Measured scan of single mutants.
Amino acid sequence: KELVLVLYDYQEKSPREVTVKKGDILTLLNSTNKDWWKVEVDDSQGFIPAAYLKKL
């Protein structure tokens, strides 16, 4: 599985998104959309702007 590093805090703005903190390491589930990547946070899944993430 691929991991990503969160570069900036992000507060979810819709139920399909997730809240993350700078420095979090998350599992990347889908990066086919260049603007929004799907990640797994704890036991939930959701989208975060790709610009907030860096592949490890």
Results as ranks from 00 to 15, higher is better:
I25R: 04
L28N: 00
K22D: 02
L26E: 01
F47Q: 04
W37L: 01
G23Y: 04
L53W: 02
K21H: 10
L26G: 08
L3A: 05
Y8W: 12
G23L: 02
L56H: 05
K34M: 09
K22W: 04
P15N: 11
L26F: 03
K38Q: 14
D24E: 11
G23W: 06
L53D: 03
Y8K: 14
T27R: 13
V41H: 11
D35T: 14
T19P: 02
E12N: 12
P15M: 08
D9S: 07
Y10A: 01
A51S: 14
E40G: 09
K13I: 07
Y52K: 04
D9H: 05
E2A: 11
L28A: 02
D43C: 13
L5W: 05
L7A: 03
T27K: 12
L26S: 00
L26N: 00
K1R: 14
E40F: 05
K55N: 06
S14H: 11
S31Y: 07
I25Q: 03
V18C: 09
Y10F: 06
V41G: 08
L26Y: 04
L5D: 00
T27Y: 11
W37I: 02
V4C: 11
I25P: 00
I25S: 01
L5Q: 08
D42S: 11
L3S: 06
K22H: 05
V39Q: 00
V18D: 01
W37F: 04
K1V: 12
L56D: 02
K21Q: 08
V41P: 00
K21G: 04
D9P: 05
F47T: 04
N30Q: 11
T32I: 08
V41D: 05
D43M: 10
T19M: 07
L56T: 05
Y52T: 06
I25H: 03
V6H: 00
S14Y: 10
D42F: 10
E2I: 14
I48L: 13
Y52F: 12
T19Y: 06
A51K: 14
I25M: 05
V39N: 00
L5E: 10
S44W: 15
E2Q: 14
E12F: 15
L7V: 07
L5T: 04
D9N: 08
L29P: 00
V41L: 12
A51F: 12
N33I: 05
L5K: 05
K34R: 12
T32Q: 12
D42Y: 11
Y8L: 10
K22G: 05
L53T: 04
T32H: 10
F47G: 02
N33P: 04
F47S: 03
V39L: 03
F47D: 04
E2F: 11
K55Y: 08
S14W: 11
Y52D: 02
K13V: 08
Y10C: 05
D9C: 04
S31P: 05
L28E: 01
F47K: 02
L5G: 01
Q11A: 12
S44E: 12
G46I: 15
I25Y: 04
T32Y: 09
D43Y: 09
P49S: 03
V20Q: 01
N30L: 08
N33G: 08
G23M: 03
K34P: 14
T32V: 10
Y52E: 02
L7N: 01
W36R: 04
K55T: 06
V18T: 06
E2Y: 10
D35V: 14
Y52C: 14
V4Y: 05
S14M: 08
D43G: 15
